[in-house]
């Protein structure tokens, strides 16, 4: 549904987006990750046709956004960053206006407005003017606007920004549910969100895609992914680490916490994690170490994110 190829955008001499390509099919939810200023919003603005790219092509469905913007725009629902809306209108008035711009009128328009008011829990505030609303409601009003025409493609720029935990949960559930039938791109800073909602994630840094895969694949890129974490209620840290590290197939082992004594062992190969875990279990039984917990680490997305997007100079400094 969404095809982006070699997208570039220069603001003056600065390249905000520098050669981004990806596709999103129907039934996919693509998470867009990246530090502030990485070019996430700029990319989304180009996809939705708000700003023209310096180079590259954008296809929505069968329509080229640059050559034939109107049919392409018809397929997209867009929630811009900060969820803007006309503050002098009521919630229902604003939604009716966007429905009309989407080509609806009469009964169809009324039905569409009712549908999104219900979906986004706006019943209580429908007659209230937008400037009297709290941030959460404003956000949901703008979100409601983006799905009013039940679009095939949804582009959401930080859809959960500024919402409370309950609202965040609602919006995530909504995105996941809609993701079964639509092609969705959304950007976020919150990494758990990606794991909870996305079928695929893209990490973008300084205008370039630096990682692209399922959240599982990405987590595998964490330095601790595949390591075995073992916990004992008691024991001599140095001795345990030394003996575990001496097991065949293990690169090294290090003490990461005392009381309970926690040791992390890195196997040579990630595929050998299970065997390593079994070997440690056997060793513990033989040595009569009081084993409390033992598991293979999946790796954490925030570690991947940090290791990929931290600028090189800073990485040197933290070493």
């Amino acid at each position: 549904m969404i095809q982006v190829r070699d997208l570039k955008k220069n603001f003056g001499p600065k390249a905000a987006v520098n050669g981004v390509s990806f596709t999103v099919e129907r039934g996919e939810v693509l998470g867009f990750l990246g530090p502030n200023g990485a070019g996430k919003s700029t990319t989304m603005r180009m996809i939705t046709g708000f700003i023209p790219p310096t180079e590259g092509s954008i296809k929505i469905g069968d329509h080229d956004m640059l050559e034939n913007p109107l049919p392409a725009k018809r397929l997209i629902g867009y929630l811009p960053e900060n969820a803007p809306s006309y503050t002098d209108m009521t919630v229902a008035g604003f939604l009716g206006f966007t429905a009309e711009l989407r080509g609806m009128s009469g009964d169809a328009k009324k039905k569409a407005v009712e549908r999104v008011i219900e979906m986004c829990f706006l019943e209580n505030v429908r007659h209230q003017s937008v400037d009297t609303l709290s941030k959460g409601y404003r956000h949901r009003t703008c979100f409601a606007q983006s799905i009013i025409h039940d679009p095939d493609v949804l582009v959401l720029d930080e859809p959960t920004d500024g919402l409370d935990p309950n609202q965040k949960h609602e919006v995530r559930t909504l995105i996941r549910r809609m993701g079964e039938k639509k092609a969705i791109i959304f950007s976020t800073h919150i990494l758990e969100e990606v794991e909870a909602v996305c079928s695929r994630a893209v990490i973008i840094d300084r205008g370039k895609i630096v990682a692209n895969g399922t959240p599982r694949d990405l987590k595998m890129r964490a330095p601790t992914a595949g390591a075995v974490l073992v916990q004992f209620t008691d024991g001599n840290g140095a001795d345990v680490a030394q003996k575990v590290g001496a097991l065949p197939g293990i690169d090294r082992a290090e003490v990461v916490g005392e009381r309970p004594l926690t040791v992390r062992a890195y196997p040579h190969k990630r595929s050998a994690s299970e065997d390593t875990a079994r070997a440690i279990n056997e060793l513990a039984a033989k040595e009569r170490w009081p084993l409390q917990q033992l598991h293979v680490e999946e790796g954490r997305l925030d570690e991947v994110f940090r290791s990929i997007t931290l600028p090189d100079t800073k990485k040197e400094a933290t070493k």
Binding site: T48, L70, Y78, P80, L101
Partner: peptide
């Protein structure tokens, strides 16, 4: 100022 220009110009209108 409101940022609504981004909404307006991404609607299917010229």
């Amino acid at each position: 100022r409101l940022g609504t220009i981004e909404l307006l110009l991404t609607m299917p209108i010229t």
